[in-house]
Amino acid sequence: MSDVLQSLFVLGTSHHATPLDVRERFALTQPQALELQQRLHAHEGIRECLVLNTCNRLEIYGLADRIERVDEIRELFCEKQNVPIELFQQYAYSHNNLEALQHVLEVSTGLDSQMVGETEILGQLKQAYTKARDAKCTGNVLNRLFEKSFQAAKAARSQTGITRGQISIGNVAVDLASRIFGQLSKSRVLLLGSGEVGEKTAQALKSRGADDIAVSSRTFENAHKLAHELGGSAIDFEDFKAQLEHFDIVICSTAAPGTILDRSIIAQSMKRRPERPCFLIDLALPRDIDPAVEDIENVYLYNLDDLSTIANENLTARKAEIDNAREILKKHAWNLWLQLRRRELMRRS
């Protein structure tokens, strides 16, 4: 009888080594990914398998009767996707056994992600695992492997600063808004312009409780459309200055050639709301808000550079935690490996 644990593997491509245009050629839709998973499971010698398919990675986890099965899987995938095998081999990586264990633990913790420490990958991995388990494509080994990887990810996140600090512009803005207002449910948001970064920032605020969002743009149709998407209202661009005092958070991302909010406009607005702070987020280039407003009491102005600096510093801090997190995961991987080996020995005896 062969040792099943000698053929635990992961085969895949990710953003680390594969350029976007090549990743596009390997990309699968979700139905295609499920179909591939079923085909692999039906393949002779593949005992368990799981396909993880995200925008940044395509990975096949499996347990085969012998390690050479990985070559067959590679061929099968290339044939299905109609890509040259040389191209796939150029960018793909594969790990076996303990290395495969360490890899899945690092993926689930977000160490292997483009944005180090991001948590979305854990959700995607859990989803892929649930689907594979429901489809009976996973068995004792992969079930244990993935369940333990979720626990290890939680431990690494809580014991290190790998997830500390926000690393996207939208989430950094939300963090700052929380430092100014606390709960965002009572904060009124005004989005000026229909730029993509502004929209994402408004969405991030909405996801954290800011329900009252108004949009104003030179093209009223654009404002109306965006307001509809955000579940808010549209304001005529000519009127927004008169209504400024009613808004706690103002996001500017217009394509105006100069400033649209100067010191006198903001000062006038703040006179009518002296007790309530105002958070101004200037995401436009050139800037929409005169930097001199920063001196006004109870006004907090942040531009794109400020937010990017915070995001980058947080990312650097997270990267500095990678080694600590990796050490924790190594211990988990080793313990898991021993558990799986013990089980295999018991099964044999």
Binding site: D175, L176, R179, I180, F181, P277, E294, Y300, I310
Partner: peptide
Amino acid sequence: GLKKKQFKGLYQYLPSVQ
């Protein structure tokens, strides 16, 4: 902290200004 764009250390743990 908010005016000087400081976000690390003590600042991140304090309640909001409001």
